[in-house]
Amino acid sequence: MTTKRNPPAQRWKPGQSGNPKGKPPGTLGIASKLRQQIDVKAIIAKLSESAAKGNTRAAELLLDRALPPLRSVAEPVELPGLKDAATLTAKAERIVELAAEGKVSPDIATALLSAIGTLAKATEIDELKRRIEALEAPRVPTE
């Protein structure tokens, strides 16, 4: 049989430091001191000057670090026959047909098919929820 032991008394009171002679607040660490010594504007100016003279590595550094990466932006597309498709399966088939005909790029077709898959999952979840609620609903006896 084990007996419970009382926890040891606290050595420090709340708000009291365990190391009162430790590092004073506001003291800078090594990394902070180095950051203060670096002249960022001068480095960027030098890289810009070097890139302008044809140094591709300097240009690469500037572009990689200073500018956000470029992302492709899809233009709105016309999808003939998609509105007429009654089911999600029919819509997916129409998108595949349009991609095969070259009327929609493969990456846009992939994104649209992924969206249809997500919509199908959401529809399935809604249907399951409706069925569960119907099963759990109290039944009124009929006479």
Rank of each mutant, 00 (worst) to 15 (best):
V140G: 06
A111I: 05
P68V: 09
G15L: 06
E75F: 05
I125P: 00
K33F: 01
K21G: 04
S105Q: 12
D126I: 01
L61V: 07
A52R: 08
T56A: 12
A45N: 12
T142P: 02
P68H: 08
N55M: 00
A111R: 10
K83C: 11
I125K: 00
D64N: 15
K129F: 06
L79W: 03
L79D: 03
A52C: 05
S50F: 01
N6M: 10
D64P: 05
T118P: 02
T89N: 05
R11M: 10
R71T: 14
S50P: 00
R94Q: 12
T89E: 09
T142A: 13
Q36H: 13
L112A: 03
V104D: 01
P25R: 07
R57P: 03
A115R: 07
L67P: 02
L113T: 04
E124L: 09
L70K: 15
K23V: 11
A134L: 08
G29W: 04
A59I: 02
A100M: 11
A86L: 11
P14W: 10
S72F: 13
A51D: 07
A120M: 03
L98R: 09
A109F: 01
E93P: 00
R94C: 04
T123E: 03
I125L: 00
A86W: 04
G102N: 09
L67I: 06
W12T: 09
V140C: 07
R65H: 12
S32D: 12
R11L: 14
P68G: 07
V96T: 14
A51N: 09
I116S: 03
T123H: 01
T3G: 02
E127P: 01
A85V: 06
P80E: 11
K53T: 05
S50H: 02
S72H: 14
A134D: 10
I108Y: 08
I38P: 01
K103A: 15
P69E: 14
R94V: 04
L63H: 14
A122F: 10
S17Y: 09
S48D: 04
T2M: 12
V140P: 03
I125N: 00
S50Y: 02
L135E: 08
I43Y: 02
I38A: 08
